[in-house]
Amino acid sequence: MDTPLGHRPAWQDDRVNQPPRPTRRQLLAGVAVVAVAAAGGCTGRAAAPPPPDPLRPLLAAALADAELAEAVAAAHPSVAGAALALAADRRSHAEAIGAEVLRVTPSPAPASTTSVPADPSVPPEPAAATGALVAAVRAAQTQAGALVAGLPRHRAGLAASVAACCASHVVVLG
């Protein structure tokens, strides 16, 4: 590695008597090994795969609810307003939860591997379609609320707000 001025300090000339210095690549590899060992330390097995992120089911539900709400809005214009409002909030949830999952476990496109829900089936009657949305947001409220007690603090706050939002949509749909 050259110095910015292209000048080699005198001490670097005396290589023969120096122990071999690790290259930058070797240092980075060492850091990676330490990081993997530290990450595996909580399970006691460095080689064990990390446990699944507890937020992943919330991400999947948010995406599925958004898909269902958009399908309901398309099929039943009379309830489209409430359905699209729900879809927008659930997409916001998916975005925030997905970002948090990715922050903790960087992996290529977690949303695309979690999403791809099957085309939701929409009840033919508007009242039944609204009922399906109410059932979905009630389930989502329960799902997110149940995680609040046990998650790390900032994740618990996120899950709590998701639960509260889903509860408020029961009011809008009802």
Binding site: A85, S161, A163, A164, A167
Partner: peptide, 29 residues
């Protein structure tokens, strides 16, 4: 979380009474 949820629900009800939109926020609190 119970208090946060109830507050979000009541805020939505008051917005509906007032006729303001949107009725919800994605991340109450």
């Amino acid at each position: 979380v119970d208090s946060l949820t109830d507050a979000a629900v009541r805020a939505t009800r008051w917005r509906r009474t007032a006729g303001t939109a949107p009725l919800t926020v994605p991340f109450p609190g």
